[in-house]
């Protein structure tokens, strides 16, 4: 009898450890995030009290939240879009039979290998107005004749952060897209050649539809990385000048880790999680993964 039950539910027993692990590393922290968001918690004062949805109500009137949400959309939208476009171009080049392709593929990965904090510090030096390499380059090319203090203006500082981000992360997108391109059978391109298709037509009608699943993966992963990015922002601008480059991830870090306002920090964490989920679902809807196989 016992053996019969064991055999009947054998598959459940087999996946049980995995579910337990998943519950431990995903479900519990997520639940805890929601739970904590219902409390006023201040670690410095040692105060904890249940406030229900008060933190969510407060969030609607928090000017910082809305401002940093806007910065997050600008940052994530720009960095992800640019790295996707660049990734497409570079992977397309690396997919061709060019001399030194293997070496180029390895070199291309270098920015991705560097820790993001170092990337931030490096770009801070590059963008310095007095001894920065970027100003020196622009001056030598005759584009400017006066040093520009890139990191002291809100708009140019945000451009700097976005630039450092896509510089560091484009190799990741390239690798994913290149893997997708290499899985496309050569016969399709040969057939297109026979039909007299141009390079653009081949890219648009063959490559692009067939790497849709790869684009989806790259887009989702990049968005996840960018939306929670903290390293580059902190190392490059520290959120400044003013709060021009503060994003939701840095706000959560400040609230939860530095100021120990765990309850309100968790509330914004919940909202960021919901935004992320919404974005992933919208990518699924737009790109309809799997359509390439049909």
């Amino acid at each position: 009898m016992l053996k019969k039950i064991f055999d009947k539910y054998f598959h459940y027993w087999m996946v049980f450890p995995a579910i337990l692990l998943l519950a431990f590393v995903v479900i519990y922290p997520t639940f805890n995030l929601f739970y904590t968001s219902l409390f006023f918690k201040n670690g410095q004062l040692g105060v904890t009290r249940f406030v229900g949805l008060q933190n969510y109500k407060k969030l609607f009137f928090d000017a910082n939240f809305w401002q940093y949400l806007g910065h997050t959309f600008v940052y994530v939208g720009s960095a992800v879009t640019i790295s996707l476009i660049l990734g497409l171009i570079i992977s397309n080049i690396l997919n061709k039979s060019i001399k030194g392709r293997s070496a180029l593929r390895t070199i291309m990965l270098l920015p991705w290998m560097i820790p993001l904090v170092l990337t931030g510090i490096t770009w801070r030096w590059i963008l310095q107005d007095i001894y920065g390499a970027f100003n020196a380059l622009l001056m030598q090319l005759g584009i400017i004749n006066q040093s520009i203090a890139w990191l002291t203006d809100g708009t140019t500082a945000m451009i700097g952060v976005i630039t450092a981000d896509f510089w560091a992360n484009t190799p990741f997108v390239t690798i994913i897209l290149l893997a997708g391109m290499q899985s496309i059978p050569d016969q399709l391109y040969e057939a297109a050649d026979v039909d007299g298709a141009t390079g653009w037509q081949k890219f648009y009608n063959i490559t692009l539809p067939l790497i849709k699943p790869s684009i989806f993966v790259a887009l989702v992963m990049r968005t996840l990385f960018a939306i929670r990015a903290l390293d580059i922002v902190y190392a490059l601008t520290g959120g400044g000048p003013g709060e021009s480059t503060e994003v939701l991830a840095s706000y959560i870090y400040n609230l939860g880790r530095r100021w120990l306002r765990m309850g309100y920090g968790s509330t914004i964490g919940v909202i960021l999680l919901l935004i992320t989920i919404a974005l992933v679902f919208s990518f699924m809807f737009i790109l309809k993964p799997g359509s390439a196989r049909e």
Partner: peptide, 16 residues
């Protein structure tokens, strides 16, 4: 005073 001072701390200013 250089504009970039806004983003330069103790070490950077010493370098200057």
């Amino acid at each position: 005073t250089p504009k970039g001072i806004i983003s330069m701390g103790e070490g950077n200013v010493g370098d200057l």
